[in-house]
Write a protein that binds this DNA or RNA. Structure first.
Lengths: 303, 303
DNA sequence: TTCCAAGTGGATGCGTTCGATCATGGCGTT
DNA sequence: AACGCCATGATCGAACGCATCCACTTGGAA
């Protein structure tokens, strides 16, 4: 078996010229190096060095093994470095699962300060799960789930981090443009634009239209928020989005938020993690930043 | 220090599911595995597995280390194999990666004279890569890449070894059978048979149909050249293959090559190697034989 | 549904084996 | 002749194996 020590010896001998010198670098004795290399040579049936007097000249096999060593040893060293960083909690990948499109928009706002504050932590966002977001959390496919649907179950912890209102978005020449709120039946002749997810996962259906027994004239699915709002702005339809998101886009598009029903549709975003991970520092930090960001957003909204 | 045994243990546990099962594969006891991994964990300060009851679930650090293991251990195993070959006077194994089906047909023609001329060198052909052919070259999974797409990048050398023309293949009762060349629109009603690779990797699409905005009536994928040409011969569709390949099959099937467009689709096969390997004698020899074979083929074609 | 027993898998303490060290010898260079 | 370097044989510590313990899972009977 080629062991790491053999590769290290080859490199050290190449660098320092002799077994004795190499032994000092490797904090072993010259004897140990001699023994182990000879054993390897016996196992493989190949001489690694030609012993010419007191100098060691690599054979062809030795050159080959040296090339292997120069390639693999640095990788091992780098791996050790990274794992030690893991140990200090400063290294890892925070894999975040998303279960809703507005969540993604919200996440982007938290992500950049987090990445700045934790330069050692990478972030990955995953939106496709084999067995749903909860399954992904339990199955260690992700470390954090951003979702509007909390699940209080043993092993997981969900925490609300952001309250918002889901509103209707209309263009500036739309009849509802200046209305205090929209009634379900006022959408029966409209084109409703949503993200491409099943209707039973869309609040505008489950908490607004369906209870009133209303369907829109047409239901279009669009992936990106920008295009969606351009469609709305040009009078091609209406959409349902978080109010804070609409407010941000109002400077770029002539769109208006309209309350969905008299009381509006109130929503929360939850962050879920495994209880076992609750005391990982960068996970705590992410939760903390998510909460404080929510407060800031709230303050801005009251101004 | 991360030793080889740690990497082996990680791989074996991943494969067999438990330390006990892994210990059998590694010809060690469960105790030894437990001891060494715990020592590594203490040295690095990182848990490699979460011990949840009697199951071992890799942590992020464990997953990371497993990825390292899956990359490095095969290289060590291959190195051992090669060194043993050295011991028996053999020279090594030339691992050739293929990125296109016609390349494989071409390779077969070069392989037999090479193996005859270099009895000490084995050959292995690999067609599945995790990170593409270039990645396999860089990652020392292969020593030579046969590909129609060269990549001139530091560390690698690509060299064209064979020019050929990609042609349409039709059966003897096909209207295009005696045509000087085919126009894209003449394929709009046809069944096009190709190897099972994405359309954007097929020249008949990228350099013939797609520029003209044409799609075939149907697109079928078939793995083997023989079956493909039998389909073509029986009038079940048309295919696109190298001209020299079609010429060889014409003695066995009633099939005809037809130029793709007025100018035809001209192609080259490239051989790529690592620059570091450029002066290994049998690699130079292979390149030389590949070039000379191309010349012979050219001469034969002119007869 | 609850309980218990059997079976399985990981952790751990202690004895043995293997590898590193030490001491020494051989050989070539200076 | 003296020094430096590698090789080799005998002693000491670390790693492996054995036996055992403990935790968890499973299946069947109460």
């Amino acid at each position: 078996m080629i062991e790491r020590i053999h590769l290290e010896i080859l490199r050290a001998v190449e660098e320092h010229g002799s077994l004795t010198a190499a032994s000092k670098k490797l904090h072993l004795t010259q004897s140990a190096l001699s023994h182990s290399m000879r054993k390897l040579e016996e196992q493989l049936g190949v001489e690694v060095w030609l012993r010419e007097g007191r100098t060691l000249r690599p054979t062809q096999a030795g050159e080959y093994l040296l090339a292997i060593a120069n390639r693999l040893v640095p990788q091992l060293e780098h791996a050790e470095k990274r794992l030690r960083q893991f140990a200090e909690g400063e290294r890892g990948t925070l894999r975040i699962g998303m279960e809703c499109h507005p969540c993604y928009q919200w996440l982007l706002k938290v992500a950049s300060p987090f990445l700045a504050a934790w330069p050692g932590v990478d972030m990955d966002v995953i939106q496709k799960f084999k067995f749903g977001g909860i399954g992904a959390l339990f199955g260690y496919e992700i470390d954090m789930l951003v979702s509007p649907d909390p699940l209080y179950k043993t092993g997981l912890t969900f925490e609300p981090v952001f309250d918002y209102e889901q509103v209707l978005v209309v263009g500036d020449d739309h009849p509802l443009c200046r209305a205090r709120y929209a009634k379900p039946e006022q959408l029966s002749g409209e084109v409703l634009i949503t993200y491409p997810v099943p209707a039973d996962r869309l609040d505008v259906f489950t908490r607004f239209l369906t209870p009133a027994g209303i369907s829109p004239r047409q239901h279009k699915e669009i992936e990106t928020t920008d295009i969606m709002l351009q469609m709305v702005a040009s009078g091609r339809g209406v959409a349902a989005l978080p109010r804070w998101l609409v407010e941000e886009y109002r400077s770029r598009f002539p769109v208006y938020p309209v309350r969905l029903g008299k009381g509006g549709v109130q929503k929360q975003i939850f962050l879920g993690i495994r209880e076992a991970d609750a005391d990982i520092d960068y996970i705590r930090a992410f939760l903390e930043m998510a909460r404080s960001h929510a407060k800031d957003a709230f303050k801005r909204a009251r101004k």
